[in-house]
Structures are given as C-alpha cells and as structure tokens.
Amino acid sequence: MPTPNDPLFNQSLEKGLAVLRAFNAAHRTLTLGELAELTGMSKGSAQRTVHTLQALGYVGKHPQTRRFQLLPKVIDIGFNYLAAHPLIRVAHPYLSQLAQSSGETASLTEAVETDMVYIAQFLTTQHIPVLTPVGMRIPMYCTSSGRAWLSTLPDAQARSLLGSAPRPARTPNTLTGVNAILDQIAQCRKTGYAINHQELFLGDMGIAAPVVNSSGRAIAAVHLSPPTSRWTLEEAQNRLAPMVIECARAISQSIAD
C-alpha cells in the first residue's frame, strides 16, 4: 500500500489499474457511472482514465450495448508474468504427472494478499463441477491451498491474516471462525496436507500441500480438486493426499537445487 505523501507514487497509474480491476465475472461490462462508483473516482476522473485506456487498446465499448468492457490486450500484462515465472517452468512436469496419476485437476497457486491465485493448472479429462481458470483468485480462509500456505507461517501471523479480511460463508459447510480455521491449519502441519470439503463450492473438495523455500516458508501451494461425485473425503485423503505431498515436495526440492 502507498505511504502518505509518497512523492514517487503515481495516482494516475493507480486509477488506471483500479479501472482494469473493476471488471470481473460479475461486471463484464460497465457504464462510466458504474466505473466511477466501483473505483471511488469522480465521473470526470473516471472518464479521463477510461479514455486513456481506450486509446491504449485495453478497454473498448460493447458493439451493441455501448458499455465499456476489457479488450484482449489486457491479457498481455498477466501473461508476461506467467511466461517469465521460473516456478511455473519447474512445476510443469510435476503437475502434469500429478494430474495423470490422480485423474483429477492439478493446480499451482500463489498468495496475493489474503487470496490464492491460480498460476498453473492441468485439467482432468473427466467432468469437473467448477471452472477455476489460471488467474482466478480464491480466498485463503476456506480453501485447501490457502490453508496449506498459511500452515508454514507462525500462528500469530496466520491469525492476523485471517482476521484482516471478511470470511463469509460461501456454502453451508464453510468454516468462518478464526479458531476453527487455525485448527485446520494446525492439522495440516501434522499431516503435511490441508483439506477443503465443499467450503468454497458445493460438490468440490480440495487437497493441498505447500511448496516451500529453503527456509521452510511457503512460496506456493499444489492442490487437487476431487469432486464429491467421484470421491468421498476419506478416499481422497487416503489416496490423493500422498500424491499431492510428494508433488509439492518434488517442486520444493527442485527450486532448492
């Protein structure tokens, strides 16, 4: 976050990025007034910002509705990060093997604030109830990958992160209390893997293990997404958890070499 009176902080760039982030699955197209409201800008400031992004080719208008929408050029920004990421190149063969061995979707996620973001994924050929594409963000508190990542932090730091963001019940199974989530994190430290049983999406589970650096701190997490239509939680823990742990361990060792 910018510090007060930072002479180098560029507010115009901040506004441009805020406009780009305002578009999401719930807001695929937006009017100028909606953009101003979502970003906290005045309508005049939003108009100047959107005009600049439109001139640069990142934002355009829907041909029928004339509402603003993102254009394909915005993909360049995220793709450049992924293309240059050394961890993704290292993890690629291990994730491929994990997906093949398990028959389920294998993913690699990184922490962004109090979320985890998908940076690599190998999809199963079988039916999956939920689409989680690369670039999607999911909350730490109710996901196996988030809990795996938090498991490498001291309790006080994990508690602080959990308490710094809302924890709504995404499904009837979602754990929202900090102490209950910390209990799951403590269990992960014992077993080497974290679980999510229909806490983010109904019909979807998660089995995750942290990818750690030489200091033992998580830099990412590997997880499988077994659906409840094919697996019980007990079966997933018994058969899939060892695969996930081994995959995360292999990636961790590879980046340490």
Results as ranks from 00 to 15, higher is better:
residue 36 A to L: 06
residue 223 H to G: 10
residue 158 A to V: 06
residue 88 I to M: 03
residue 186 A to G: 08
residue 45 S to M: 10
residue 152 T to P: 02
residue 77 I to V: 15
residue 233 L to C: 04
residue 188 C to T: 14
residue 67 R to V: 05
residue 17 L to D: 00
residue 179 N to V: 09
residue 53 L to G: 00
residue 190 K to F: 07
residue 120 A to R: 10
residue 146 G to D: 00
residue 46 A to K: 07
residue 89 R to Y: 04
residue 117 V to H: 02
residue 136 M to I: 01
residue 138 I to F: 00
residue 209 A to L: 06
residue 108 L to T: 04
residue 12 S to E: 10
residue 55 A to D: 12
residue 43 K to P: 05
residue 144 S to T: 05
residue 130 V to N: 08
residue 217 R to T: 03
residue 150 L to M: 12
residue 215 S to M: 05
residue 60 G to D: 12
residue 105 T to P: 01
residue 203 G to T: 11
residue 57 G to V: 06
residue 21 R to A: 14
residue 64 Q to G: 01
residue 182 L to H: 06
residue 239 R to C: 08
residue 232 T to G: 13
residue 23 F to P: 01
residue 147 R to C: 00
residue 32 L to R: 11
residue 135 G to L: 10
residue 200 L to V: 05
residue 165 A to L: 02
residue 31 T to G: 15
residue 9 F to S: 05
residue 154 P to R: 11
residue 245 I to F: 07
residue 222 V to G: 02
residue 160 S to T: 15
residue 224 L to S: 07
residue 180 A to E: 15
residue 23 F to S: 04
residue 220 A to E: 00
residue 23 F to N: 03
residue 41 M to I: 09
residue 218 A to F: 03
residue 15 K to P: 01
residue 142 C to Q: 01
residue 165 A to H: 11
residue 229 S to V: 13
residue 198 Q to F: 12
residue 224 L to F: 06
residue 227 P to R: 04
residue 253 Q to C: 08
residue 241 A to I: 12
residue 131 L to V: 11
residue 225 S to D: 00
residue 239 R to N: 08
residue 24 N to C: 10
residue 22 A to Q: 12
residue 53 L to T: 03
residue 79 F to H: 12
residue 19 V to S: 05
residue 114 T to G: 00
residue 105 T to A: 01
residue 37 E to Q: 13
residue 139 P to F: 00
residue 87 L to F: 02
residue 3 T to G: 09
residue 180 A to N: 11
residue 155 D to F: 09
residue 203 G to M: 09
residue 131 L to T: 09
residue 40 G to P: 12
residue 125 T to H: 11
residue 178 V to H: 12
residue 161 L to C: 02
residue 101 S to T: 09
residue 211 V to I: 14
residue 20 L to C: 08
residue 167 R to E: 04
residue 58 Y to K: 08
residue 147 R to Q: 12
residue 40 G to T: 11
residue 102 S to L: 04
residue 160 S to M: 13
residue 187 Q to A: 07
residue 214 S to G: 12
residue 21 R to I: 08
residue 235 E to V: 04
residue 78 G to Q: 09
residue 203 G to S: 12
residue 145 S to Y: 01
residue 158 A to F: 07
residue 1 M to F: 07
residue 11 Q to S: 08
residue 60 G to T: 12
residue 121 Q to M: 09
residue 92 H to K: 14
residue 227 P to I: 07
residue 76 D to L: 10
residue 22 A to Y: 14
residue 29 T to R: 14
residue 52 T to I: 09
residue 239 R to D: 13
residue 118 Y to S: 08
residue 185 I to P: 00
residue 164 S to C: 05
residue 250 A to T: 13
residue 230 R to G: 07
residue 94 Y to L: 05
residue 75 I to M: 11
residue 104 E to D: 09
residue 149 W to N: 02
residue 37 E to R: 12
residue 169 A to E: 14
residue 129 P to W: 15
residue 70 L to Q: 12
residue 49 T to H: 02
residue 142 C to D: 07
residue 31 T to V: 08
residue 126 Q to C: 03
